[in-house]
């Protein structure tokens, strides 16, 4: 196809690719590029955590650079959880901190040449379902069965189906929000690189700052905030 430099559309590529497949109970299961990218993100995070553990084991009164960074991250995350969850924060700060770091690193991994794992609906749906499970586990634990039934029949008992649909919409909207934001950023940067070809030299850095860094950080914050709000609502008995 004759398209010149401006429209080299055939190197547009933001799809998920299969790496290899295997058969499990008669179903063909694919290991895709998302799995590989998640694995890389996990390895980087685990390496960071091990380094942090080693540093904190010999923590000094006057902190060095790396110790300062770790303390800053932990204090900020704890402060965020404390501000929203109040008295429930000690139980959930581990989980919220973990998913915050994981989603943040996944969202900005587009900067390092990976396809962001959160631009795969499988990843974000899994995160949304974990939130869903936590909400309902804690609801049954703290409000007991009576409280759950009372919550379902909130204004009148006839509203129970609508409340059930609303409960089921929570993980779907949480996961779709994160997925669509990261995917739109990925598609836009790919379009710029693919369609402008050789003209896209230095200035796409500004696009990356907005679409990868800013949007990714905001969506991470929103996902964690909403998860914390829902869980706090489920824990409060009144």
């Amino acid at each position: 196809m004759e398209q010149g430099i401006l429209l080299s559309a055939e190197n547009l590529d933001f799809m998920i690719h299969g790496v290899f497949s295997y058969t499990l109970f008669g179903q063909t299961v694919w290991i895709t590029t998302s799995h590989v990218c998640i694995l890389i993100v996990f390895l980087v995070l685990i390496g960071f955590f091990i380094a942090a553990r080693i540093t904190m084991n010999k923590a000094s009164e006057v902190p060095g650079t790396f110790q300062n960074i770790i303390e800053l991250i932990v204090e900020k995350l704890d402060g965020m959880v404390e501000g929203v969850m109040g008295k429930w924060s000690p139980k959930f700060r581990n989980y919220i901190g973990t998913i915050f770091l994981f989603i943040l690193l996944s969202n900005i991994s587009g900067l390092f040449g990976l396809r962001p794992p959160t631009a795969d609906y499988g990843t974000t749906l899994a995160l949304g379902l974990i939130t869903f499970t936590l909400i309902h586990y804690n609801q049954f634990k703290y409000q007991k069965v009576k409280g759950v039934i009372k919550g379902l029949c909130d204004p009148w008992p006839i509203w129970a189906p609508i409340n059930i649909i609303g409960d089921c919409a929570v993980p779907i909207s949480l996961s779709l929000r994160l997925f669509a934001n990261v995917l739109s950023g990925l598609v836009m940067t790919t379009l710029v690189y693919g369609l402008l070809g050789k003209l896209a030299v230095i200035w796409p850095a500004a696009l990356h700052v907005y679409l990868d860094l800013f949007s990714g950080a905001i969506q991470t914050y929103v996902f964690c905030m909403l998860t914390m709000t829902y869980i706090t609502n489920a824990c409060n008995t009144d």
């Binding site: 779709l176 929000r177 934001n181 929103v222």
Partner: peptide
């Protein structure tokens, strides 16, 4: 920013 990110969801459904 939190409110705007939540309000953005319906637009993202259209984009999807």
């Amino acid at each position: 920013l939190l409110g705007q990110a939540v309000a953005e969801t319906t637009g993202l459904y259209g984009l999807l």
